[in-house]
Write a protein that binds this DNA or RNA. Structure first.
Lengths: 247, 247
DNA sequence: TTAATAGTGTCTATAAGACAATATATA
DNA sequence: TATATATTGTCTTATAGACACTATTAA
């Protein structure tokens, strides 16, 4: 930031936030029998054929996070979620909005499917390439936002158990794997997946020390909780950094 | 983006770009005998004791990349670099600038040390925690920008050879390791480092097929080029994703 | 009982960590 | 020659991949 005493010499752009609300549709509801990554879209009233992400202009005195929360409230009818918007990129083409100079801050948020119950809009399936299959094409740069949002979420879900916290409470390894397969859009190896994840989880126990179990048609499974300590590096990812002074 | 016909009802914020210009000071010049990560800072004229990153307000009709290029030109005297600004985060606290409503888009760019020859400002060493050791404290949120810029660059330099392209031409594995050790602020294991990197590099040869070598006081070393194909996944990072339908 | 799911154990292949040995330049 | 750096090879260890086997529920 430079030294400019009179800011009024600059006319700032209108700044919008556009949000890819990502969720995982549970297997029984997805139609395919598998959990599926999906994004919340809506049909705007100002075009006949087109789909957009929820978005909103930033008001003075607001933070970006507040504008995101407002957009989710006003556009999607979602209230009271405490989400962590992740900034993806800025769309800054000076001619991108014919109505005037606007910037758009593309964001991603991950929301548990249950919290999208009363939401307005539709859930569009996100395919392996990050393309949303809404009925009509995504307008503006919104396809890019969805693709980058999906890419980021997939990268996060490859090494850590449910890093976005879509499970509110405990979960079994099978439920966790369903979730991860939905996010990644790929099947995962059960044994390797379990080995990687177990070491980052804590088995849930009752106060008397007995394990909390959950059954799904077979042998009951241990229920796990995310470790309270975040940022534990997955053991599998060896680092080049030297622990000592050697060489 | 919603449907708003009259944009003039919104008064947009002033939008600034602030840039962490990262470079690696070669070992002979750093004073420590090791290559060192550094960031370009300047002493602003409006405070007695404080340091800032180069920055500039976005003008109408400009893209963010153009504003970054302008800032590097006007503030640091750098012309003609084609840099790739990486967006790090938005600083959006409504009260962060007493002069009025401003947003700042924190960016990182990586620039080869040779290109900073005629630059205004000083190079501040960036330590292992991402803290810049300028003589005086970094003002505003600029310490956060430097930290996140360094984090991102370090993550990139752990698995791939010189992903930011600080070497313009060919390099030996020893030179590459010096560079990576400077970025990471850590010594690296020579053998493992070489194994990882060689498979992502192409040995430089003359038209007659003889290898290009370079000597540094001992046996001459092969000169390598980055593979023209970017985005080659490092072989070491095994993935969970199934190649087949199994499990 | 059978079917379905959960969990454990084991063998193999691959890559990292550690270190030794050899090669080729300069002083 | 001695010294410095580069390069190759090998042994050990850790983890992924593959698969078999046991365990515990419901129907």
């Amino acid at each position: 930031m430079g030294r400019v005493d009179d800011l009024s010499m600059f006319r700032g752009p209108n700044v919008a936030v556009d949000i890819a609300v990502l969720t995982v549709v549970p297997a029984p509801l997805s139609g395919t029998g598998l959990s599926q990554l999906a994004v919340l879209v809506e049909q705007p009233d100002f075009v006949a054929d087109g789909t957009v992400l929820p978005g909103r202009f930033l008001r003075e005195g607001q933070t970006v996070a507040q504008a995101v929360a407002d957009a989710l409230h006003v556009k999607a009818g979602l209230v009271g979620l405490d989400v962590l918007p992740r900034l993806l990129r800025v769309f800054d083409d000076p001619g991108r909005d014919p109505r005037g100079w606007t910037l758009s801050l593309g964001h991603a948020v991950s929301v548990a499917f249950e919290h999208l119950e009363g939401a307005r809009g539709q859930l569009a399936h996100v395919d392996g390439q990050g393309a949303a299959d809404a009925g009509s094409p995504l307008l503006f740069d919104h396809d890019v936002i969805v693709r980058e949002a999906a890419e980021g979420m997939r990268a996060r879900y490859e090494l850590e158990p449910d890093p976005d916290g879509l499970f509110g409470v405990g979960f079994t390894l099978a439920e966790l794997r369903d979730l991860h397969e939905g996010v990644l859009g790929q099947q995962l190896r059960k044994d390797t997946f379990n080995r990687r994840m177990v070491e980052q989880l804590r088995p849930q126990t009752r106060s008397d020390g007995t394990p909390v179990l959950r059954t799904r048609g077979g042998r009951p499974a241990q229920v796990y909780l995310r470790q309270p300590r975040p940022g534990v590096p997955p053991a599998s990812r060896r680092r080049l950094v030297l622990p000592r002074e050697t060489n």
